[in-house]
Nucleic acid binder design. Structure first.
Length: 1002
RNA sequence: GCCGGAGUGGCGGAAUUGGUAGACGCGAGGGACUUAAAAUCCCUUGGGUGAAUAACCCGUGUGGGUUCGAGUCCCACCUUCGGCACCA
């Protein structure tokens, strides 16, 4: 027998398949059930295919091959995402025209894909950079334009200084360009957008209809970012600086203020968006985004225009520079000359401009509720604005304890740690950083927050703390409606005036002490206020809280709890308060419930060369005119200096931009920007259905036959790019009547990243890149395919093991050598590759080994099920078990071996074809039917019954699965080992799970 | 910070509805063949006590719980990967 030589047999079969394209072609007129199996189409980069690609492609290939053998009409196509930045950047790097380098890359990719033995239907190959393709990309643009879903707008856009083009939100990852990782800046430019936001709700809701990984769904949900809230109108009054001062003093009598406010005419109205209308009484100031719509309108009314202008410019510049910087300080300045009125309480609230408010979300204005929103709280602390609690937790209390206030802080910490949930607090900037409490030897935190449930726990806490407090120091407890101070016993003995004075003295000293530190303790403001208070008890101060610095306790987005300090809704739950305020505002026509989304419209203009030109013409007379459909495609000219300058390279090409207006025939200019490459990839899966059609993007009959995609495999990186855009396109096509289904991809799976042998991400600089070409040359494509599938679950991240691949290579060699043991009995039926399942088990088998038969049929079942579930790794291990068993045999039954070859074929197609042929079959193995396991070989006549005593395995017996419980009990109790164990003990309980386990409890 | 996924031998990873934890592969150790090596084949391989392939104990990130029985279910926590991150 010849040696297994993949270098010889693999090209042989690749050539054979190329000559027999019908084996893999989808049939347009077939009556068979369709199956659309798809891998995300690659962009042909100069680097060539990597092992990650190979994993995704092998997975879909195996699936497609099995489905074909099972009699499905399988559509399994391939094409090229040829436009776009990577291709263009690569072309610039090697100083070749992108069309040329792309063509070269496509050739290389094609070679590599074929070398992998992938069963694509090459007759449907597409290339998104060909005019035949992008004329329909342009057609889609026009369709969107006609529907009002493509629009041009001057707006601040993400700009990558290195790629010199704008980017969609989705292409900015953590403030950096998705491609080159440069910091993205903001630029104001005229740009084309697709109105994907129109579908925000559907894109969110329809996620339940698809079988996708939960993680991807979650990413999309986050990205769409739906939040239900309320839009509220605040009136603004123009005030003199004197009036402003008067109204800003929150201590003033409410009625007096309200009356005075009402007398001032309303100068403007501002809409704010809030998700917490229940906290409206705690809204103590308003903040406008520096770049928002609201400020734009109010700006002219401000008394300090210049300052605001300066701040605004500063904020915009800062956005450019520091967008990525985390924990930015919340800067802001007051807007003078205007005061807002809380529409519900009638209370005057100051208006600020602050860059922590987003200009393009809601109306760019918020009502700030510092007591119950962390960000508002930070801003309030920084700018000394009032904080007012309006929500309390009925039973939750929080204590703050400065550890330097204690005599023995370590001891106290240990005591508290056992009793309460604790958090360590350290001062960072103007707030606290919360962290877990560390063990003994580490440095003690500045302070701790103690969580307590109910008054009893508070009482216990006080008992622990009081004796340990140094004289003149305290711990404060927040919870319910009050803030309480615990002092050392000797400080305050009773409620006399004298004692109060003593207490105030303590606090004053403390202020000095805290101020003397170089870091700012946020509680300082609080303590200062307390000093002025008079109404307190002997050893605690009870005080309705106007402010607290205990962030963990008070500044909490309390989603549960009750409302207080809110005349209209006092005492009701948060949910009820929400409803009531909403109703109240609706009745007065000053607000309504609305839904806001984080999703922004899709910016599709690119100031680059290598993309589909936007089919729009600008005419001095007629304005923006779409290119008539009959003039498509607007061809991308070949001879262009495409090195990016920041403006479209087409801008300098007169022969391109100079044109006639399709409406009036006058002089006009073409749009010179090109489309985002993700526009091309948003519809490519439709083009496969009908790639040669020059009338439509795809014929209706074809769409009906093959869509939607049944199985789609690709990388997670497209979660909010390609996958979201494609869903948008399909929904839009449905609304325009081109398709009748809501989702393009029914089942989606992500392949995990293949790491280098060193468990690091493969990268040239790390020198850990595995090149599939090299693997194929050394070990063969079948080995590569099998190993990629055997490494681990498809979706998991897993390292490449150069030694591990030898294991699967050995397996294939074993399979190869098994040929020699196959009994060459000459009987006709075997030579007919189309023979039916019934004949598979014929009487003239040379080997009637039942054990092998059972394992074989188990393997058929498991491999079928596992491919269906994309659990290729376990399918392979099952085949290994079978082969290991077979190798112990002297002879191998030919029909049985052929059944095995068929289930192995999708994994190792070349080897399977070769052996299949060696065995005398004339047809391709892929024309054979997929085997079905025979039930009679799946039933077991002997099972292992494990015998446990008190949950511990003590013995195991082989018995018939049909045995009755009584019989089993008799056998088990007669086992010598079990007898020994039981001794004379009483059998308390007998648990019997037929065919599995017995548990005897004594 | 919020949301989602994941923690199992030296390594990649297996384990229906809770029912023999560690399949399969790699690596390692021992042996056969060989002048020798590679390749190949055979045996062993979670940890511990033991002369033992006798027996027992411990073991699926940590601590609790439910159960006759927990990798699997519940509670709390730790670690890690990924997404969002001033989105009000």
């Amino acid at each position: 027998m010849k040696k297994y030589n993949p270098a010889k047999i693999e090209p042989k079969w690749q050539k054979f398949w190329e000559k027999n394209p019908k084996l893999y072609a989808a049939e347009d007129g077939s009556r068979k059930r369709k199956f659309y199996c798809l891998s995300m189409f690659p962009y042909p980069s100069g680097e060539g295919l990597h092992v990650g690609h190979a994993e995704s492609y092998t997975a879909t290939d195996i699936y497609a091959r099995m489905k074909r053998m099972q009699g499905f009409n399988v559509l399994y196509p391939i094409g090229w995402d040829a436009f776009g930045l990577p291709a263009e950047n690569y072309a610039i790097k090697i100083k070749t025209h992108p069309a040329e380098s792309t063509e070269k890359s496509i050739k290389n990719y094609t070679r590599q894909l074929n070398a992998l033995g992938l069963s694509y239907d090459w007759s449907r190959e597409i290339d998104s950079s060909s005019p035949e393709y992008y004329r329909f990309t342009q057609w889609f643009f026009l369709l969107l334009y006609k529907q009002g879903l493509a629009y041009r707008q001057k707006a601040r856009a993400n700009w990558c200084p290195s790629c010199r083009t704008t980017l969609a939100n989705e292409q900015v990852v953590a403030g950096r360009c998705e491609r080159c990782e440069s910091l993205v800046i903001q630029k104001k430019l005229d740009q084309w957008f697709f109105k994907i936001t129109k579908y925000a709700d559907q894109l969110l809701a329809d996620l339940v209809k698809v079988d996708w990984p939960e993680s991807i769904k979650e990413i999309q949900r986050n990205w769409i970012g739906r939040s239900r809230g309320m839009e509220l109108i605040f009136e603004l009054k123009k005030v003199t600086s004197k009036e402003e001062k008067f109204f800003s003093d929150s201590e003033k009598n409410n009625l007096e203020i309200a009356a005075k406010l009402q007398n001032i005419p309303t100068a403007a109205r501002v809409k704010v968006f809030t998700t917490r209308p229940d906290t409206i009484f705690g809204a103590t100031f308003m903040v406008l985004a520096p770049d928002g719509e609201s400020l734009k309108q109010l700006y002219k009314l401000a008394a300090n225009k210049n300052k605001i202008k300066a701040y605004r410019l500063g904020a915009l510049r800062k956005n450019e520079m520091q967008r990525t910087q985390l924990n930015r300080e919340k800067t802001g300045i007051p807007l003078r000359g205007l005061i807002a009125v809380n529409p519900v309480s009638g209370r005057p609230i100051p208006v600020w401009v602050g860059d922590y408010v987003m200009g393009d979300y809601g109306s760019g204005a918020i009502m700030a509720v510092p007591a119950h929103d962390e960000r508002d709280f930070e801003f309030a602390m920084r700018h000394n604005l009032p904080v007012e609690r309006v929500i309390y937790q009925e039973k939750k209390y929080w204590a703050f304890l400065n550890l330097s206030f204690l005599r023995n802080s370590r001891k106290v910490l240990e005591t508290l740690k056992d009793r309460y949930p604790l958090q360590a607090l350290n001062i960072i900037g103007k707030g606290y950083r919360v962290s877990p409490v560390k063990t003994q030897k580490s440095k003690l935190p500045y302070g701790i927050a103690v969580e307590m449930n109910g008054a009893n726990e508070v009482g216990e806490y006080i008992k622990i703390i009081q004796p340990e407090l140094k004289a003149n120091f305290w711990s404060e407890i927040a919870g319910g409606k009050y803030l309480q101070f615990v002092f050392a016993k000797e400080v305050v003995r009773d409620n006399s005036e004298e004692e109060k004075k003593k207490l105030q003295h303590c606090l004053k000293n403390a202020v000095k002490l805290l101020s003397g530190r170089n870091s700012f303790d946020p509680r300082l403001n609080l303590v200062k206020k307390v000093i002025g208070e008079k109404d307190f008890y002997a050893d605690y101060i009870f005080w309705t809280i106007p402010v607290t610095a205990l962030r963990a306790a008070v500044c909490y987005a309390e989603k549960s709890g009750r409302v207080f300090n809110s005349p209209l809704i006092n005492g009701v739950s948060v949910e009820k308060g929400w409803e009531r305020i909403c109703k109240w505002a609706r009745e007065r026509n000053i607000g309504r419930g609305i839904v806001n989304y984080r999703l922004r419209d899709w910016l599709v203009s690119r100031q680059r060369y290598w993309g589909a030109p936007i089919p729009i013409i600008y005419c001095a007379k007629c304005g923006t005119v779409p290119v008539p459909e009959k003039d498509l495609p607007v061809e991308l000219p070949r001879e262009v200096d495409f090195v990016p300058t920041g403006e479209s390279p087409l801008k300098n090409l007169k022969s391109f931009y100079q044109t006639k207006c399709p409406k009036c025939g006058g002089e006009a200019r073409r749009e010179v920007d090109t489309m985002d490459t993700f526009v091309c990839s948003s519809w490519y899966y439709y083009r496969y259905l009908d790639p040669k059609n020059d009338k439509e993007f795809a014929g209706q009959d074809k769409i009906r036959r093959f869509m939607p995609v049944d199985l789609y495999v690709g990388g997670v990186e497209h979660a909010v790019l390609h996958l979201l855009y494609s869903r948008f396109f399909t929904k839009f096509l449905r609304d325009t009547g081109y398709v009748d289904f809501p989702e393009p991809f029914l089942k989606l799976r992500n392949q995990g990243i293949v790491l280098g042998p060193d468990h690091n991400k493969m990268s040239k600089s790390k020198g850990n890149v595995i090149n599939p070409d090299q693997i194929i040359a050394e070990l063969g494509a079948d080995t590569l395919r099998l190993y990629e599938m055997f490494m681990g679950p498809l979706e998991e991240m897993k390292p490449w093991d150069p030694k591990g691949i030898m294991g699967v290579r050995r397996f294939l060699e074993k399979v190869w050598e098994m040929q020699g043991k196959v009994q060459s009995v000459k009987h006709a039926p075997y030579f007919d590759t189309r023979y039916k399942v019934q004949s598979q088990e014929s009487g003239d088998t040379v080997n009637n080994n039942l054990k092998i038969k059972k394992i074989l049929h188990q393997t058929i079942k498991k491999v079928t099920d596992d491919i269906e579930a994309l659990a290729f790794n376990t399918a392979i291990s099952q085949m290994m078990i079978l082969v290991n068993e077979w190798r112990a045999e002297k002879e191998i039954d030919r029909s049985e071996f052929e059944l095995f070859l068929r289930i192995l074929a999708p994994f190792a197609p070349h080897l399977a074809e070769e052996i299949w042929e060696e065995l005398g079959n004339k047809n391709s193995i892929f024309a054979a039917e997929w085997p079905r396991p025979q039930e009679k070989f799946l039933v077991t006549d002997e099972v292992t019954l494990v015998v446990q005593i008190n949950g511990k395995k003590r013995d195991a017996i082989k018995i018939s699965p049909n045995i009755t419980e009584a019989e089993a009990k008799k056998i088990v109790l007669a086992l010598p080992r079990i007898k020994d164990y039981l001794g004379g003990k009483i059998l308390r309980r007998w648990v019997y799970i037929p065919g599995k386990i017995v548990n005897i409890v004594t």
